[in-house]
Design a binder for these strands. Sequence first.
DNA 1: CCAACCATGTAATAAGTTACATGATTCA
DNA 2: TGAATCATGTAACTTATTACATGGTTGG
Lengths: 187, 187
Amino acid sequence: MSLRHAVLGLLSERSASGYDLMKLFETSLAHVWHATQSQVYGELAKLAAAGLVTVSAEGPRGRKEYDITDAGRAELRRWLTETEPERIRRNESLLRVFFLGTLAPSEARRYLGAEAERAASGHAALRELERNVDWGDGALSHHGRLALEYGLRFTAMQEEWARWAGRQLDAPAEGASAAAPDSAGSR
Amino acid sequence: MSLRHAVLGLLSERSASGYDLMKLFETSLAHVWHATQSQVYGELAKLAAAGLVTVSAEGPRGRKEYDITDAGRAELRRWLTETEPERIRRNESLLRVFFLGTLAPSEARRYLGAEAERAASGHAALRELERNVDWGDGALSHHGRLALEYGLRFTAMQEEWARWAGRQLDAPAEGASAAAPDSAGSR
DNA sequence: CCAACCATGTAATAAGTTACATGATTCA
DNA sequence: TGAATCATGTAACTTATTACATGGTTGG
């Protein structure tokens, strides 16, 4: 139930409306936790009912500003310190790799090439983001910097892997014995 | 709707029952696409209704063996060659990083330390898997080898990142200027 | 004979997506 | 005055999780 904690986390930095939160989900959290508008509004209502946030002000156009409560902060803290993050168990790109054998070799190579490109452009987009974000806001953007570095390393790793995997397809399919010099084993 | 394609992909290698497929989801696809038993049985029924698989045989204990049909193979192929994989947009571990500022520094450091440990033990588990899997089965395990290498590189990257991020917490919070020598920028 | 394993399914609930519906305010 | 933006919500549907329910077969 991490959407709940994502909302609490954002509100722990500053109060915000559903609309404000959506913008945060689309910018700062875009690569980390996706949420739709209907999810956010729904979750805010549930959080308010549970007493973890309150409507602290109402503005023009029916705007409702939400504040995190002490109970909300306690729940955020409990989540961060007492629960383990769920491991990622779904990766569509990688799922496809399992079934590349059903394609012609040239098609499989094309897929891995496209993967490398996607990773490279993801990397470039993060570099761009790095230059454009105004660092120095709150703690959130300070830690966001750490997440961005993760993204940079991740996309770099993905590209390298995809290029390596592409070369494996060309190499003789002799099984595990063929450890590439470039393999993770070398680290 | 990748569960559907995961099932088709597995059946493209060999026919299987729902029970057999579940074992495959728990072993080969464990780190790549998680599915529950009720999802698998439900999906098989839907696939059969759609004509993408057929019940090719019935065995003891009500066992139903499923075969992929030509329409099923066509759909698998369409998915692999004509659609783009969905990017991962949810990463709970990384979401938590954004909110580490709400914790005491020692707690934040503990979190990143635990992340490094989790990555390291994931890496070790994959190394173990690498030694125990009998390579040389079908195309599926050949490509599974590629996915395993991805896992090895990924967990290595995660551990390195978590250790780096831990050091960042100790370093002065001067903002973006403090590029670590270890940063992705050095590559 | 009984434990382990094989084997399939349903029900209830939760989480996530897509589309729709509505309207106020600001500013050029 | 009209476009862009602010702002909230609901409905229908799909996907995923958890728990339950049932029973057959095999092998020590």
